[in-house]
Design a protein around this nucleic acid. Sequence first.
DNA 1: TATTGCACTTTTATAACTAAAAAGCCAATA
DNA 2: TATTGGCTTTTTAGTTATAAAAGTGCAATA
Lengths: 301, 301
Amino acid sequence: MRSSELSSRISQQLIQDIASGAIAVGQHVGAQQVADRYGVSRTPVRDALNTLQARGLLKRQANRGYFVPDNISDALDQWHEDQDARSVDPYQKLADDWLVNRIPEEVTEQFLRQEYGWTKTKVNEILVRATREGWAERKEGYGWRLLPVAKTPESFDQIYRFRLSIEPVAMMEPTFILDRKVLKEQRRLQEHMLETDLGSMLDETLLANGSIFHEEIIKLSGNPFFLMALQRVNRMRRLMEYRAKIDRERLVVQCTEHLEILELLEKGDVVDASYKMRQHLSGALKRKSPIAWSWASDSEK
Amino acid sequence: MRSSELSSRISQQLIQDIASGAIAVGQHVGAQQVADRYGVSRTPVRDALNTLQARGLLKRQANRGYFVPDNISDALDQWHEDQDARSVDPYQKLADDWLVNRIPEEVTEQFLRQEYGWTKTKVNEILVRATREGWAERKEGYGWRLLPVAKTPESFDQIYRFRLSIEPVAMMEPTFILDRKVLKEQRRLQEHMLETDLGSMLDETLLANGSIFHEEIIKLSGNPFFLMALQRVNRMRRLMEYRAKIDRERLVVQCTEHLEILELLEKGDVVDASYKMRQHLSGALKRKSPIAWSWASDSEK
DNA sequence: TATTGCACTTTTATAACTAAAAAGCCAATA
DNA sequence: TATTGGCTTTTTAGTTATAAAAGTGCAATA
């Protein structure tokens, strides 16, 4: 059974979907279906499904497909333990090193290849992603420049101020569509969060929850530029939050507020929902820095 | 005298800066100074300056540097003629082909290499840029997906709606700084536009003018996320406008409105300036499609 | 009839080498 | 004393062969 990078990514994603409840217990998980969802062929999906089945996260019925078993919690716990020693994503590694000033502002590809032992393509792939997510850019000549944005405590506030300017407005766009199906699905996810023991969930899953909710709502605006802008700042925010201790109590408040917004939308009360969204974001902004900015001091050495 | 891609880009940029008035007549243009501005070494800058000097766009004084000559208009006209047969930027070529549906939504790198005769690195470079500018993304497995955003007449409206939600708000940010130096420079550029014969200016120069003004203003907000978002939609807008006939009369109105906003800011009247900005953008939105959407019909075949 | 399993094709990654381009340095000069 | 000119060093682009990974079609099976 092969286990390429892509199939590992698919495994991770599937586990997260199962843990977050996006894929329900007992549900059928077919290779073709998963392949379509992620836009890949069945080859890497099959490897991923095989791996998950081997670890008891999926049950297999010959020639009928894979299913989420009843005893999924145990298997998930087991999997979490196994993963504790998992290797860190190179992208996160670079982001991390940049945040704590372990690498200079300007780097050459060669420097990264030597420093991390990455191949030419790997370096390129990582830098492209960093470029897309807004914290790196190619210099005109040789080398790359890493941007100080998203490095400081201020950027957290700045991101929330930016979101305050787009999210409530997006909900008032003339092309906004109250898609009941989306609202229902989001309600299900938020309620699932509240019902589940948050301590047993992966940090990634918890962080993803907030982003997904807001992105699904802004998507309803029918204006893709609002979505693109939100996705971009969310990715940056997660770079920072990745290093932080998550305040799980705060998450309960977050989910509750999400549900309140959903309720207003389900009633068709878009204006109040937009207002509530504004309050929701203001609340996050007003809170004292929700993250221990342990690394900010490093830059003052 | 070499003429690499980078040094050609620098030449282009310098000419545009001279044409738009960012570099004034008689001003000294030193190699080191230019190199610092663009973040490159003197090597490609020297090639560029040499090229420009050879065409009479710069005057050289031995060991003292280059200067913008008095008779720059003639030299610029001459240069424009020479450039008429200039080769199209591969990036624009791909964008163009995508806009008129000459290439499929999903492409492999190999396809592009064969179709356009580009090298592996070139293909990568172009796709990375398209990714950064938001209209392409890597598929999970092989291949790339081109996004339909920025292909339709609606996107034009959507971009303006988005800008309406961020630009006036950004001016009201608590960190907004009224930088007189920036305002003065922008006033100079806008007045230069009005004084110059627009017919003699390159389309690129005219299109860049509007973007730069708005980006400089939003930069004053002190919140880089507003700037990043604006830059992104501006780049997309220019992809579309690149194909269009420019309404030069409209540009006069545009510059005048820019000057009005500057005037309010110079008086320290940020609130009114923000309101004027809103009106300015609304005006552009309300105008009937400013572009002949010649290619939109192609998709309905 | 939907799904898997498997063989086969296409596409991309990797590595090593050569050519081209950019960066960096220092002496020469107005 | 700032600036250019020419030179050397460093970095990246281009090329080719080979391995690995992903995509694709079709028969087998519950």
